[in-house]
Computed example of a mutant assay.
Amino acid sequence: MLTVRAVTTPHVPEQAVLAALRDAFADLSRGTSSAPGQFAVGLPGGGDVIHYPAVRPGAGIYAVKVSPYPPRPSGGALVTAWTMLVSLSTGQPLALLDASGLTAERTAATTVLAADLLLPSDDARTAAIVGYGRPGRAHARYLRLVRPGMAGRAFSRSRPQSVDDGVQAVAGVREAVAGADLVMLCTSVAGDVPDPLIWPRARSSPRSRPTPPTTAAELVQAAASGWDAAAVRGDLAGLVAGHAPRPGGQRQVYFRSVGPGTEDAAVARAAYEYDTDTTDTTEEQP
C-alpha cells in the first residue's frame, strides 16, 4: 500500500521557495541533477501539452510538470499545470500537485534570485514591473523579501486602482522604467519578444543552458537582428555557485526567467514537504 498525496492547493513559504531554488541551481552547477529542457506534444485541432522533466538524485525524486494548452471553441486556450513527483528509490508516485500557483512562485523567485546576484550590492534603488497580474505581484513580493530597500513602480493595462505596499502604480511603460535599476517584464508576451529598452546594450545571462538561446523565442529574434549568442556570459546555476562572472554595472544585463523543470521539481518538493492543505488518497500498488 502506498499513500499518494494529491495536493490541490499547494503552499510553501517564500523563504522555503528561495532555499529550494538555490539548492536546485547549485545541484545543476555540480552536475548532480539534470533538466533536459522542455518539449511539447501537439494536440488535434491546435494547442499542445508542454512537459518540463527533471531528475534530482540528491532529493530522491524525478519530477515532471505537464502543462496542457487545449484549444477551446470560444477562443483562447485553457491553461492548466500539474507536477508529479516520483520516488527514485521505489519508482512510485509521491504526489500530484496543482502547479498553477507554484509556477508563478518559482518564476518570480528565480527572477529575484537572479536579480539579487546581477544587481550592484547596494546601489540598486528602483524596480519597474511591467504587467501587474498574478506573476507581477509575485515578483514584487519576492523582491520585497530579498531587496527590501528597493522601491517599485508597476504598469498594467488593467490599471490597478491599488497595488501592494511599496509599489507605485504608474500610467505607462516609459514612466515605469525611467531611471529603473531593474526592469521585470511580467506580461503574457514577455518571453516572446525582444525588448528594445534592453537589447541594444545588453549582455545576456540566460536561465540555464538547455533553454536559450536556440529555443527562447526572443533570443532567436534578437539573433536574427544581429545579436551574437557569444554575448552570453553565464547562467543562474553558475551565478549561484560563483562560477559565472558577475556584471560590473557598466552595461545592461538581460536575464530570461522562463525555465527548466528543475525549478518545478524543487518547488514541488518543497510544497510536498511544507504544505498543510492536502488530501491523502490510498491506492493499491502492484
Score class of each variant (00 low, 15 high):
G133N: 01
R22F: 10
P194W: 03
T214K: 06
S225F: 09
S156T: 13
L94V: 13
R56N: 13
G149D: 03
V193Q: 04
P120E: 11
T187A: 07
V64L: 08
L185K: 01
E105G: 10
S29Q: 00
R147Y: 00
V173R: 04
V189F: 05
A40F: 12
S100E: 10
S87R: 03
T282P: 05
A244T: 07
G46C: 09
L143C: 09
A24F: 15
A178Q: 13
A128C: 08
R157V: 15
L143W: 05
P71T: 13
E283V: 12
A108C: 14
R174V: 13
S225K: 10
P71I: 08
V183W: 00
G75D: 05
E283C: 12
R125D: 15
E105L: 11
S156H: 00
G242V: 12
L96G: 05
A59F: 06
L28S: 02
H243K: 12
V64M: 03
F255N: 07
Y132V: 11
G37V: 11
S158T: 15
A128E: 00
R153D: 08
L28F: 06
P206V: 13
Q38F: 08
Q161A: 15
E175A: 10
P247D: 03
L219Q: 04
G261F: 02
P213S: 11
G191Y: 06
A114G: 01
A222P: 01
A202L: 03
D123A: 15
M150P: 03
S156L: 08
P57D: 02
L94C: 12
T110G: 01
A138V: 12
P160M: 10
Q168K: 13
L18V: 15
P135Q: 01
